[in-house]
Design a protein around this nucleic acid. Structure first.
Lengths: 174, 174
DNA sequence: ACCTGAACACCGTTCAAGT
DNA sequence: ACCTGAACACCGTTCAAGT
């Protein structure tokens, strides 16, 4: 005798993203997610293998959300950098969890595409991948350090970000 | 009637660092550390407020270990970059945990000093801090992405690292 | 087919009692 | 002074039983 579905993987993952931002990775528990979607914890195991799978699904969803932001950001590197930073500031835990897990290939590729397009326009086909990686690494590290408070030592963080964007852009074309 | 101390904060933190590398952050439990140092879990609360304090202490110790590496690495930027990367590869979880917690001011300052010295030699006093941050952000992001598997898409990762080092060094002086 | 309560193992934390 | 066992709350996970 079938029972109607009382939730869905999508709803579970969306609830997971919200809980993650409020309670951090240690607060992203099966029980918290179950309560949020109106179900008992054992029911989650119908859709997710275990807690690690929940974390991986939330990480993948964060990458997808970032990708959507980047795709609608515009086609130059400064616009992409600002969209990336805005995403990290609005979803600091979502930003962090992306790098705590080996993401699926296709999600990575989609998220990288806008920047590779922008880099190609700037430096040409041959150097586009190297340039995109240089830029992504800088931005990722900058945001990581900004979020973890490593820039408390002084100076204007906004200005430091702009400095990095213009400096790297100039360095690529020069 | 006094009882002899059966462990110490130093021993606890050292055990924590080893467990972290083997079992990851979720495996860094009070019970695992207690067993490793030959004591029962409640005894740890004599020296550490709670589990968060254990994680923070392990993060601070990781920063100190990195600082020692950097201090003995040499005085130019390429040498510092390679020392940083070697540390991250040998202690991937130690590298990650450094950015998951707001580190104490003085630990941050000490860890930054060698790079700021190298940057000063390269670009002068005025631009040293900006240059050091640009470089640290890039290296941190690169290692983060390397460890999380974001470079699986192809290309020689060692070469990409060298490319970044030389490109950034040239960009700073140019 | 999906959901649940019950059960078990394991962890964080407190505290009274031991030496 | 430091250490421990006992206790409690909470979480992950499995599974038989409900609809």
């Amino acid at each position: 005798m079938p029972t109607p579905e009382r939730t869905s993987t999508e709803e579970i993952v969306a609830a997971g993203r919200e809980i993650l931002e409020v309670a951090g990775p240690s607060g992203l528990t099966m029980q918290a997610v179950a309560e949020r979607v109106g179900v008992r914890a054992p029911s989650l195991y119908k859709r997710l293998r275990d807690r690690d799978a929940l974390h991986a699904a939330v990480a993948a969803a964060s990458i997808d959300a970032l990708t959507a932001r980047l795709e609608s950001a515009g086609d130059d590197i400064a616009a992409l950098a600002h969209a990336y930073r805005r995403f990290a500031q609005e979803h600091p835990e979502g930003f962090r969890i992306m790098f705590s897990i080996a993401a699926p290939h296709d999600a990575l590729e989609r998220s990288a595409a806008p920047l590779i397009r922008a880099a190609t326009a700037l430096v040409g086909d041959d150097d586009a991948l190297d340039a995109a990686r240089l830029f992504t690494a800088w931005a990722t590290g900058f945001l990581q350090m900004e979020l973890s408070g490593a820039f408390r030592l002084g100076g204007d963080v906004d200005r430091a970000f702009e400095y990095g964007v213009s400096r790297l852009t100039a360095g690529m074309t020069g």
